[in-house]
Simulated scan of single mutants.
Amino acid sequence: MTLLETLNITYPIIQAPMAGATTPELAATVSNFGGLGSLGSGTTSPEVLNDHINTMKGLTDCPFMINLMVLSEHDSSTLDSSIPAWLNEYYEKNNIKMALPARPALRFADQLQVLYDNPVPVASFTFGIISAEQVQRLQSLGTRVIGTANHPLEAKAWADIGADAVCIQGSEAGGHRGGWLPQSTNDPMGLLTLISQTRACTNIPLIAAGGIMTGQAIKAIQTAGAELAQIGTAFLTTDKCSINDTYKQALLDASQDKRSSETRLTRLFSGKQARGLLNDYLRDFAQFESAHELPPYPQLNAMTKDLRAHAKKKLDAEHQSLWAGQGVALVRQERTTQLLERLVKEL
């Protein structure tokens, strides 16, 4: 059975689950078109997640995906790192009040429970791996399970516990990298290398992510050994995406030579590697990028939350996390359905 058949979709297109950028309306539009729409729900409370699932079920009869971030109880509850001096100085200099939350992230177990109580067609996971028992429980409820990997060993780990597919995310991809093994951080692989090396160690169906902006690119990754493409950056500038106007304009400016389309893999916003447009924040604090200088994810993410919120309020693109992949120069301002129609036409 092909992965298209397993997921019950028409086109080899998955709209990436970008936390903070995806809405039920965006995901439903993609699903109703014949792709797989998804919600990045790792930062969504269990109550709101349940509401989102019910909204999705009301907007589409087609399959859709919910994505969660796998964090241990310790990681999601611990705030024991000191705030970096450079970050504290920035807050003071710009007269921004910082209020740390009681815990840096939501409890993964509570979010996962929502998927047990209100089953969805597809569930995907990033930042870590769940247990074989959890995979089996989801599958027993009719949910297809997809893991995320940045390294062949991570993909094999998902295969070994019975996942239905793995999304392998090349270093070109925008936003946070989904892997968890040191190897994936130490030597990030480009997508085609990652596909070929993963194919060599496991037969699990593959979804490819990273820099895919056209139908021709979808055909290229299929030739290389992946079945479906997961596309994120291209959707950010479409009408159904919920990112703020300053962020969206920065992406469009990058595509129109009004600002550089150069991106960086950085840990400076969250403590975990993520790719975004190069801006003043990344330039000014580049010297602190090294691992031993920074609090881990999600602690640093909690520490920079007020900085990012202030930048958003001030319409300041230079201090927001402008997540984008290396294909950002190809974004267009268009309707979500226009993007989908163009991708399918190019297949």
Rank of each mutant, 00 (worst) to 15 (best):
151 H>W: 10
262 E>Q: 14
289 E>K: 12
344 V>Q: 10
13 I>C: 04
201 C>F: 05
90 Y>I: 00
83 I>P: 05
262 E>Y: 07
82 S>K: 11
144 R>S: 13
22 T>W: 07
15 Q>P: 06
54 N>T: 13
223 T>M: 10
183 Q>I: 00
60 T>Y: 09
172 E>S: 00
344 V>W: 01
295 P>M: 11
309 A>E: 12
82 S>E: 15
27 A>V: 06
37 G>Q: 03
115 L>F: 07
324 A>Y: 05
286 A>E: 15
251 L>Y: 00
181 L>W: 02
248 K>D: 05
28 A>I: 09
312 K>Y: 05
133 E>W: 03
336 T>Y: 11
284 D>W: 02
335 R>P: 08
12 P>Q: 10
144 R>P: 00
312 K>A: 15
1 M>R: 12
276 G>C: 12
269 F>L: 08
105 A>N: 02
209 A>I: 02
307 L>K: 06
249 Q>A: 11
72 S>F: 10
216 Q>P: 01
337 T>S: 13
322 L>C: 11
20 G>W: 02
251 L>A: 02
52 H>P: 01
36 L>N: 06
121 P>S: 09
129 I>V: 12
27 A>N: 04
234 A>G: 02
268 L>A: 09
329 A>H: 15
72 S>E: 10
233 T>A: 01
285 F>L: 08
1 M>E: 13
288 F>S: 12
342 R>T: 14
115 L>C: 06
52 H>G: 00
89 E>T: 15
56 M>E: 10
145 V>N: 06
80 D>H: 13
146 I>F: 06
220 A>D: 11
280 D>Y: 04
298 P>S: 09
15 Q>F: 03
313 K>M: 12
223 T>G: 01
282 L>K: 09
26 L>C: 06
